[in-house]
Nucleic acid binder design. Sequence first.
DNA 1: GGTCTAGAAATTGTCCGACAATCATACGAT
DNA 2: ATCGTATGATTGTCGGACAATTTCTAGACC
Lengths: 253, 253
Amino acid sequence: MSVEFAPLTLEPAYRKVAAAIGARILSRALVEGERLPPETELARQFRVNRSTVREALRELESRGLVQRRAGSKLMSVSRPQQGTVAAGVSHALMLHDVTVRDLWEALTILEPPIAAGAARRRTDADLKCVSAAVEAFAAARGDTEQAVQLSAAVFRCLGEATHNPVLGLAHEPLLRLLGPSLRIMIDEVPQARARIATAHRRLLDALLARDADAAQQWMARHIRDFRKGYEIAGIDLERRVTGVTDPSANPAS
Amino acid sequence: MSVEFAPLTLEPAYRKVAAAIGARILSRALVEGERLPPETELARQFRVNRSTVREALRELESRGLVQRRAGSKLMSVSRPQQGTVAAGVSHALMLHDVTVRDLWEALTILEPPIAAGAARRRTDADLKCVSAAVEAFAAARGDTEQAVQLSAAVFRCLGEATHNPVLGLAHEPLLRLLGPSLRIMIDEVPQARARIATAHRRLLDALLARDADAAQQWMARHIRDFRKGYEIAGIDLERRVTGVTDPSANPAS
DNA sequence: GGTCTAGAAATTGTCCGACAATCATACGAT
DNA sequence: ATCGTATGATTGTCGGACAATTTCTAGACC
């Protein structure tokens, strides 16, 4: 046998540049808010063309590691926003043919402990976040879309209230996928709003009393209700979750 | 009041192009495996320069929506690989100062139900996946790094065995973050390997018997053991989880 | 007919240079 | 000190170029 050589530099330059900058950010050598050097300067340092640098920046940008601050030209280092990451995960789940059942099962697992943790560790600000969403939901009589959003907002506030970023980030993609089926359910099942509002109130009470057990129980019931709602609304549990209605779905005419 | 104008086209062209192509993929108008038109063709269709198209492609690439198949030039549509998405999430969590406690709490919540689901729905192939990892772990006496990887592999196989992609994707980032602290624990706590191996065996037994309760119980105990291990190893629970040791951390010299 | 090969065409990765629009800064006027 | 302005820096986009590599096409051969 001859000497073996490893295949080398299969990676294009733009990815190497992105990896180099990304590693600096992940290692915290570049901290949040710090401004990146201009593209020409990066090109000079890496000994590469500005176009190549720009391609690398697009990758870092979409990973949420760099960001252009509003009304500013220079890129600055940033931590990935929760929304950015969650969108990626929910898109991935959609494309992997996640069913309503899969989603529901995950909620069954995640949300009750989240509610319990929220009851244990909520601050007054968290309480305000939840109660605002709960009240707005109860008030949103007509508007289905708003009701769906507010229902998700309650979950979101509970996630925040755990003060555990892992939990917040873990359930955010689920909330995004929940939208479409929840919308159908609220429209088709007359008693859905009332049951959700009740669960909201009980959850709020449990949070107020810092009663983790009650919060967990009511959340579990809340999620079970979803399933009943699906059945009543005639939503097939094996149906794939549909895409989130995205305002950017604007086909180039 | 004067007429209101919405702020317009703050979005650069490269992002619009990426959004347009991305929307087609998410709406399944472009399906997995399909080859994207060449860059020049895309540039012609969108009426933009090829450089602009390339920047858009870099974004889609990093979101995992398009991919270059090995040794091929053309881009093809793909669903985001689990690894790609999980890497993004774990990076985000790192940068958001997630602590060992946060991570541990999330594992406490997620893993026991995952084990239960795995026991309920595992196939023979899943069983083989788990048992292979379990045996390899028991056999990997010396190599800490391998033991860590195999320990994660057991979790990963269990996640697969639930046949619920949501659960698999939800816990994958946690497994990646687990590495560093687990490595320390295995090195510092003499009995760690034995306890982990025992838990593995019990989990495997439960899977074999399709005993969801036993699987859940043993997994809960397994995770509780982690916490004890952290304490014995002197790992501060409030410590931030450190970065995953990344082979691409190659600073441009 | 099927398979193989060589040349042609297409495609990507990278470079260079250019320019308008916008942002940042320094500087002078009020 | 505040404001407006001129100047320079930076980004977004464009056009063109070229080498390396892949894909396609058309014969050549069995």
